[in-house]
Design a protein around this nucleic acid. Sequence first.
DNA 1: CTATTTGTTTATCC
DNA 2: AGGATAAACAAATA
Length: 249
Amino acid sequence: MGQTVCRVELNRGKRIFRDIDLDAMIKALQGTTLEGSTTHGKQMCFFFGGGIHLGIHLGMTGKLRAEPADRFSKFKHDHLVLHMSGDTVLVFSDPRMFGRVLFSAEKEPPEWWTDLPAEVLSKDFSFERMDAFLKRRARTAIKPVLLMQEMFPGIGNWMADEILFQSRIQPQRRAGDLKPAERKRLYAALQFVSKEALRIVAPDWGDFPDDWLFNHRWKDGGVCPQTGCTLKREPIGGRTTCWSPEWQK
DNA sequence: CTATTTGTTTATCC
DNA sequence: AGGATAAACAAATA
């Protein structure tokens, strides 16, 4: 913080820059001072002087790193590089480019930052809110419902399966058919999996407990760590879904 | 070579 | 209109 942007280096035409006027962004960033940053799920926002907002959505394979200038070398997928004063380099890399860069230099904070849905682990994410959402999506299978970012920001495919596994609910059940007790379990598992995933992965890409579905789900023939039975794998709502038929009802 | 996978957005249908 | 569903995206990996 407090450092100034000396030079902006980027790979033009990459999908992560969709809808951005790159020349305007570069011009605005050059010479401005980084005043702070916050995170929101897989998104981050950097605040620069003059009301400039630079958003980074990590998507699936997006990574941010900061390193000393003398150790920096640009890799193939380093699409956005901010050379800062103080010999630090901020790098956003994203091989698959499901991530995205957002930018605004308007007076008001941009809606892409102010209108984000409540984070799963925030206190605004109440059981009642989730419950109301499940009612509205009553006819859709619960698995794809968990992937809806407007309610569950940052929940992706494996997390959705893990949450259903831990709450013992079959992924093809319709959201509106879940009993109150099941919805309670779903809420608890959602919080637990999100919290644990962050706790375990964040520091150093740790391993998940072996009684999670995570370690067993990736290929056909996996064995359920709870029952010892073979896991099922098939697409639900267009995404590969893995579950334990004996364990999840 | 092709098929599959991943998180999220976007388009299209109902 | 708003909800349900399918397709799109890029690139590594099998």
